[in-house]
Amino acid sequence: MTGRNTKTLWLALAVAVALLWTFLPMYWVVKYAFMTKTEIARFPPMLYPPDPMLASFFNIFGFDYTTAEGTVFKASGQARQIILGLRNSLIVALVVTAITTLVVVPLSYVFARLQFPFKGKLLAAILLSVSLPPVSTLIPFYTLYVQLGLTGTLFGLIVVTLTITIPIVAWMLIGFFRNLPPVELLARVDGFSRLYTLTRIIVPMARSGIMVAAVIAFLFSWNEYVYAQILVTGSNAVTLPAAMSGFLFQVPEPAQLAASLLLSLLPPFCIAFFLQKHIAEMHIA
């Protein structure tokens, strides 16, 4: 065997291990979505659905599912929560993404490109808020929200989610903006105001970075669970992760849990899949 072949073989082996590492944990649960309760409960655990079916996907949206043999899988009692959760998660994630982007782009620009007094301290404050554990701010938010009547509202959830997304996205974008060429000089010679420079020159220039930042805001918001669990579970403002946890804790329904989990993974997966080229462009400060 030649050296080149050995090398390819080792690489193929390494790739196989990497793919197994990447997909085994997901596969192990996602397969439940296509299995029946009895199949899931079999011992030892089955490696794949012996008779894949889509019943769980119908059930979580409130539909009964009848197989060809006439077995009926009843609609889930949580269906309303799941549908609401899907809708709310989308609303919260989109609103949070829009606000975060709108607010963070000028903020990071200012911090990355201009010199002004107290900059270092203000920046440190922003970075400090990145390291705040949600569990510590959860208590005050919870008591505050109880008093203001904001528990169980989308507005309340959006506000807290912004406290996560703004600092982290700002931190990423500041690094990105720092590495742009000094076109402000050109813009000044060309007679453009600062605002024009920012909105009509810097923003189009930084499109790819801003897009990645927006997507990261979307991901953080879409995947947020801690605040949602405490602030909106069981209400009309429930989000998908909070709604899903009903299948995990109260009455475990692995099949429906897996189906809704798969559903919740689709948007992030699409995003990650198409944006992976740009992710490492976000220079880390």
């Binding site: 060429p181 000094p182 076109v183 000089l185 050109l186 000044r188 010679v189 060309d190 007679g191 020159i201 189009p204 220039m205 499109r207």
Partner: peptide, 18 residues
């Protein structure tokens, strides 16, 4: 700069990259 009507070529011939 604009009022002075000067033109400038910067280091490495900076242009708007987009």
């Amino acid at each position: 700069p604009h009022q002075r009507n000067i033109a400038m070529v910067f280091q490495s011939s900076l242009l708007y990259p987009h």
